[in-house]
Design a protein around this nucleic acid. Structure first.
Length: 584
RNA sequence: GCGAGUGUAGCACAAUGGAUAGUGUAGUGGCCUCCGAAGCCAUUGAUCCGGGUUCGACUCCCGGCACUCGCACCA
């Protein structure tokens, strides 16, 4: 008996075949394969209901016909039953579960089932994208964490992924910053923490420009000098960016992020003229109140709400550079698509951008890229307002991660006092950062969420620690039994029997569905939910059935379950961007 | 004003139009002589309001209410 990796896909085509045999040839029939409530089965096909309705047939009779016309090999794999008005339920037989578990024994094999619509395509993922001269703060967390998970999911399903950090390294703020740098630099502070000093200077420059017209004029002069290539100002600007990127990298290292390219606004500085020209030439851009703008007459709002692509003073803005970026990705990377992992508040801007690119590329006969706004909500404090420090400042990402690691260290020390301190530190670094990542990834990105130290680091419930703990327990079993988890002795394994074994085996088989759902919608929380449920099934199994027993067949089949749980959990956690542990 | 998003137990979150709306936390009651109790088992508790479509609605449509956000040159 062979059971394919992706059982939903298999059932989908089997139902289509059966439909063909009963004379349904139109595309209106859709099997609607779903992972089922365990009370009903492992998978269900709901499609008979909708189709029978359309054709004014009896749904239950149609479902029965489909079942009788299913390929006979399905009968060897599933217990198939009809229920209610026409649900078809499929429950995997224990032998089929064993066959699946036997076949898919490595991350590489798990990957084989992850193909989807984006397989083989090139995708640019635009994420993190902080402004230089400022520290990253909590507002930058989601883009970085979600963006990285999305990159990994896309790569896992066979897409070529280009990770692009579209930093804000050019703009009017540099006039004020350079102004302040020339007059108020504190060399001692600069030596201690250069980025911190730049951030202070930025505030000094801003405040001066607001209150002192002379300072404002001088700052504008500094900006003009920078833009016209003044060597001194260019050197200062370069220094600012170097310092900033070095500080960002410290954060990225902790989050497991490594960009392929860092192409910020300055990179597109000399590429916007062409955009203006093309957009004017193809009749999209018009002058309005002195600025160059794009209207979309067919759109209820954007008919009158302009997309400003060049300011009245002739300077570029983020719309200009975003347009130049879209062109560059198309021409240079030959990207089939771009995913913009950006705050939901920029929804209007991105809609206007996408509409403009669509028309622009249409009129210039370029291939149409798929542009997706992977939006996300705000991180709120417990007062349901955007998360801030007590003094009202943004919480720095650096401080947030340090705090997470500190809290994790206290907990590790409490639970595993006998571990050497260096190991407790190393464990806490993984647990602390993973907790932050998982807290973010485990909920639907589209909504705001409330940040709570206690819930995140409590290490109980649906947290990273629960998942890491399951991994550590499995590794511990192998360690105690003196076995190598990379080559478990499972040749004699028999089919799962106890309810805990069956529950765990069934959950393992559903990995393909979880990855598929998360990747199709670019929503990592579907994978988190699955991994949490898998870890739950494992914990139930662990409490109910002892693995290291004398009976060789029972022992082998339980080791098989442990090993497969281990590879699925680790593969899934790594897909989310988290690190895993031997023990904790 | 126009537009977008969100309203699910005390709190925080799930639910790709499907079957009895799931989970965590907090509460209550159990489980360590037994591979790690950061765990397991049991239990209390919810779809903003009013219509509609559907065999079936948290989900789709219409009308309210509440909150958040965006709307001419900051990104």
């Amino acid at each position: 008996m062979t059971v394919p990796f992706n059982i939903s896909h298999w059932l989908d085509s089997a139902l289509h075949d059966a439909a063909g045999r009963v004379g349904i040839t139109d595309s209106a029939f859709e099997p609607e394969i779903r992972v089922a409530d365990p009370a009903h089965g492992d998978y269900q096909a709901n499609g008979a209901l909708a189709y029978a309705k359309k054709q004014k047939q009896n749904p239950r009779a149609l479902a029965q016909q489909l079942v009788t016309n299913l390929s006979p090999d399905l009968g060897a794999v599933f217990d198939i039953s009809l229920a209610g008005p026409g649900f078809v339920n499929f429950r995997l037989k224990p032998d089929a579960l064993l066959s699946w578990l036997g076949a898919f024994d490595s991350e590489e094999h798990l990957r084989s089932g992850a193909a989807n619509a984006r397989t083989g395509q090139t995708w640019v993922v635009d994420y993190s994208s902080p402004n230089t001269a400022k520290q990253m703060h909590v507002g930058h967390l989601r883009s970085a964490v979600i963006g990285e998970a999305i990159c990994r999911l896309l790569a896992f399903s066979g897409a070529k992924v280009i990770r692009d950090n579209h930093i804000g390294d050019w703009g009017t703020q540099f006039g004020k910053l350079i102004w302040a740098y020339r007059r108020h630099l504190d060399p001692v502070k600069f030596a201690a923490d250069p980025l911190e000093e730049f951030e202070r200077l930025y505030k000094v420059g801003n405040a001066a420009a607001e209150t002192d017209p002379t300072a404002l004029a001088e700052a504008q002069q500094e900006l003009v000098k920078l833009q016209s290539g003044d060597p001194e100002n260019l050197a200062i600007w370069k220094k600012i960016n170097e310092v900033s990127l070095a500080a960002f990298q410290v954060i990225y290292d902790q989050l497991g992020i490594k960009f392929d390219v860092t192409l910020g606004e300055s990179f597109y500085n000399d590429k916007v003229e062409r955009v203006y020209r093309e957009l004017v030439d193809c009749g999209l851009a018009v002058e309005s109140q002195g600025a160059l703008v794009v209207f979309h007459p067919e759109h209820p709002r954007f008919a009158t709400q302009p997309f400003i692509i060049r300011k009245r003073d002739g300077a570029a803005n983020y719309a200009s550079s975003d347009l130049a970026t879209a062109l560059y990705r198309s021409e240079h990377f030959h990207a089939d698509g771009s995913a913009y992992v950006i705050d939901f508040r920029q929804g209007d801007h991105l809609q206007q951008l996408f509409l403009t690119v669509k028309k622009w590329f249409e009129r210039t006969h370029r291939p149409q890229p798929r542009l997706e706004h992977v939006d996300f909500g705000t991180v709120l404090g417990e007062n349901n307002k955007p998360l801030k420090t007590k003094s009202g400042d943004n919480i720095r990402l650096k401080d947030l991660l340090n705090e997470a690691r500190e809290r994790a260290f206290r907990l590790v020390t409490e639970r595993s006092a006998d571990f050497p301190e260096a190991e407790r530190r190393a464990i806490a670094d993984v647990v602390g950062v993973a907790s932050v990542q998982y807290a973010d990834l485990s909920q639907n990105r589209s909504t705001d969420y409330v940040f709570s130290w206690d819930k995140m680091i409590s290490l109980e419930g649906n947290t990273a620690a629960y998942l890491l703990y399951a991994v550590a327990r499995i590794r511990s079993i192998f360690r105690k039994a003196g076995l190598d988890p990379s080559s478990p002795p499972v040749a004699q394994a028999t089919s799962p029997e106890t309810s805990a074994e069956l529950g765990l085996a069934r959950k393992l088989v559903q990995f393909a569905d979880a990855v598929q759902l998360a990747t199709a919608q670019l929503r990592p929380h579907f994978l988190c939910l699955y991994l949490f449920e898998l870890a739950g099934e494992f914990s139930t199994f662990y409490a109910a059935d002892k693995v290291i027993v004398d009976d060789p067949a029972i022992r082998a089949r339980r080791l098989l379950l442990c090993h497969r749980t281990l590879i699925v959990l680790e593969t899934g956690l790594h897909l989310l961007g988290l690190r895993t542990l031997e023990r904790m």
